[in-house]
Amino acid sequence: MDQDNPKIIVEYLSDLAVVTLTDEKILEEADIQALENSLIPLIEQTPGIKMVLDFTNVQFLSSAVLGMLIRISKKIYESNGQLKLCNINDKIYQVFTITRLDRIFDIFNAQESALADFD
């Protein structure tokens, strides 16, 4: 069990890390950088990490956040890990579909289904 930067809450379930984003809006460059800085050590400390990013609290994000998610996912896959996203609300999910990022991210309605999908 670990509590990192206030922007995320991390729960470890066996070899899985469930990361809940705590901010309602993720916008400012500095906030996005802080979020990335919180996630990178988790990935580096656990090669092959199986991570779920839970968007339950997130009501708004900008394209800069999408960029951060792409960088994070690359880092995870380079370490042979897996990343899944869940609990993305309809408005934000539409941002993923417009940009076609729904094709490159594994997105699930609920955390349970994301967890159940890991190899």
């Binding site: 394209s63 800069a64 999408l66 960029g67 690359k74 417009i98 940009t99 094709r103």
Partner: peptide, 18 residues
């Protein structure tokens, strides 16, 4: 076009599309 296959993994370039 950020939706093109070769650009999907680029971290920027989606603002104007949105």
């Amino acid at each position: 076009d950020p939706r093109a296959e070769e650009n999907l993994y680029k971290p920027c370039g989606r603002g104007v599309l949105l």
